[in-house]
């Protein structure tokens, strides 16, 4: 499988997200006011955490707790300019899309790739569930998917991997725009391996469910803040690295039971086992809201 192939889903996701983010705002949907000083002007630090006034909760926009943010005064012509909207200290919801790369030195994987590198499209989302000071914790759900194909001694092989992990993301915010995080997670990996074997004239399959455990740490940076009155919309870039581990599954290829073209009583073709273990990284672009 070529690197480009592995990256296709990730790139697509990324581009779609980027395209969506780059769409001009439809009329009437003004982004929240931003610092008139421009994008480069330093952003006023968020006010110190104070107990939010027990004001009537404004209608949440973009899901944020509007009580943390004083409602923008209705401005009319000639009214005094509104004060700049303060960036929330921690993102509430985040969605990232990007690619995951893993260095998989596994014999089983060699059947499906000429390289020890597995690229996957990665999509994860997080919801901050706790915030205290500079630390926040979010629950993150990640989904990685990839498809690989190759040939072994001329016979075509293909492997589809689907990983779903869930875990907490512990963040340390240096600024509303920057935080580092660690995210241990666990989940499952579904492998679907196929071998087009010539003597049977059929496709032989070997599928498995694997336990997947990831331990990643990274950094995320707010690179574009388009938050406005209607709510927060910030764009992030995240990079993380870590280690992914899965259990192993035997690669025992057999034809489908309903494959009438395959010979009867085909012995399983044992080609070892498959496990996705090894260091990895993610690069993603996300948005928070």
């Amino acid at each position: 499988m070529t690197p480009h192939t592995a990256l296709r889903p990730a790139l697509a996701l990324l581009l779609v997200s980027a395209a969506a983010a780059a769409q001009p705002e439809p009329e009437g949907q003004q982004p929240p006011a931003v610092d008139s000083a421009g994008d480069d002007a330093p952003v006023a630090p968020p006010p110190a955490a104070e107990p939010a006034p027990a004001a009537a909760a404004a209608t949440p926009v973009f899901g944020f707790d509007a009580t943390a943010y004083p409602p923008a005064a209705v401005s009319d012509r000639g009214a005094e300019p509104k004060p700049p909207r303060e960036k929330p200290p921690v993102p509430r919801w985040q969605v990232f899309a990007g690619m995951r790369g893993a260095f998989v030195d596994d014999g089983g994987y060699n059947l499906f790739s000429e390289r020890d590198f597995a690229g996957q499209g990665s999509l994860w989302g997080a919801r901050t569930v706790y915030h205290s000071g500079d630390v926040s914790i979010a629950g993150a759900l990640a989904f990685d998917a990839s498809a690989h194909d190759s040939t072994i001694r001329g016979e075509r092989t293909s492997l589809a991997l689907y990983r779903l992990t869930l875990g907490p993301e512990v963040r340390l915010h240096f600024a509303p725009e920057l935080y580092v995080y660690a995210r241990p997670s666990a989940g499952v990996l579904r492998s679907v391996a196929t071998l087009d074997e010539s003597t049977t004239g059929s496709s032989l399959h070997s599928n498995g469910w694997l336990v997947a455990i990831d331990a990643f740490a990274g950094v995320a940076a707010d690179v574009l803040d388009l938050s406005g009155e209607r709510g927060e919309l910030r764009f992030w870039v995240a990079a993380e690295g870590g280690y992914g581990w899965t259990s192993a599954t035997d690669l025992r290829f057999l034809p489908d039971e309903d494959d009438a073209s395959a010979p009867n009583r085909v012995a399983a073709l044992d080609l070892g086992s498959l496990a996705q273990r090894g260091p990895g990284f993610r690069l993603a672009i996300g948005a928070s809201f």
Binding site: T2, P3, H4, A6, L7, A10, L11, L14, L15, A18, G98, M99, G101, F103, D105, Y109, N110, L111, S113, E114, R115, D116, F117, G119, S150, T151, I152, R153, V237, L283, I285
Partner: peptide, 23 residues
């Protein structure tokens, strides 16, 4: 960013080879 991702992936894809007996 997109371009950077592509370049990085391409660079990373050159890492590691499987045993040549499969070829």
């Amino acid at each position: 960013s997109s371009a950077a991702l592509v370049v990085a992936s391409a660079w990373l894809s050159g890492c590691g080879d499987r045993p040549d007996h499969w070829d």
